[in-house]
Amino acid sequence: MKDVSTRAAGTQPAPKARADGLVVQELMDEILVYDLKRHRSHCLNRTAALVWRHCDGSSSVTELAGRLHEELGTPIEEEAIWLALNRLSRAHLLQERVHHPSTRDRATRRTMLRRWTAVGGMALVSSIAVPGVAMAGSAIPIQCIQNCCGCKNKTPACDCSNDNSCKCCFLPGGSTVCSNNCGDDCHNQGGTCFQFDNNTCP
């Protein structure tokens, strides 16, 4: 990935959204992106989604801020756009990496917090879990897939060598306990016990 900030000192970069190798799904107020190359998935909040959509390779940061102002109906500081671009960059969703060209503006903690809030806080671009489609449709919670599929033969609690399968206790609230025996114990805690076999884990 090239570095946009080194390209033209003193001028603003015109970032361009990456399009290849991505699967994009728009929801009501956010955009979900799956990176087919890196097998990572991201959730862009409304602000980040708007910034990303307007990254056409010809709009400067100032112009992006103006567009967002029009669409959101509230003034957006350029610094907030930089923050969004930084997040998008780190998620590899821009064709070229973007860095803030100036290091003069050393924001205080308070101003940084204010800017974060203006663009939706830390959740500008967040990671989300996307299991294989088979997992999404299965009755087994994603948390179990994520937390328990790798447990085989790793710890005594997950020593599932007896019947070549592991069990996951899925508790209210979404926490999981992986073990080789979670039947009644799990149910008594209000949880549900799921069993994995070789065909279950991705």
Partner: peptide, 24 residues
């Protein structure tokens, strides 16, 4: 509510998995 956050995560996950599913 905290439980609502869990549901939302599943919605996102289903939506993206659905898009991948459609491609396949």
């Amino acid at each position: 509510a905290r439980a609502a956050g869990e549901l939302r995560e599943f919605h996102r996950s289903h939506a993206l998995a659905g898009a991948l599913y459609e491609r396949s």
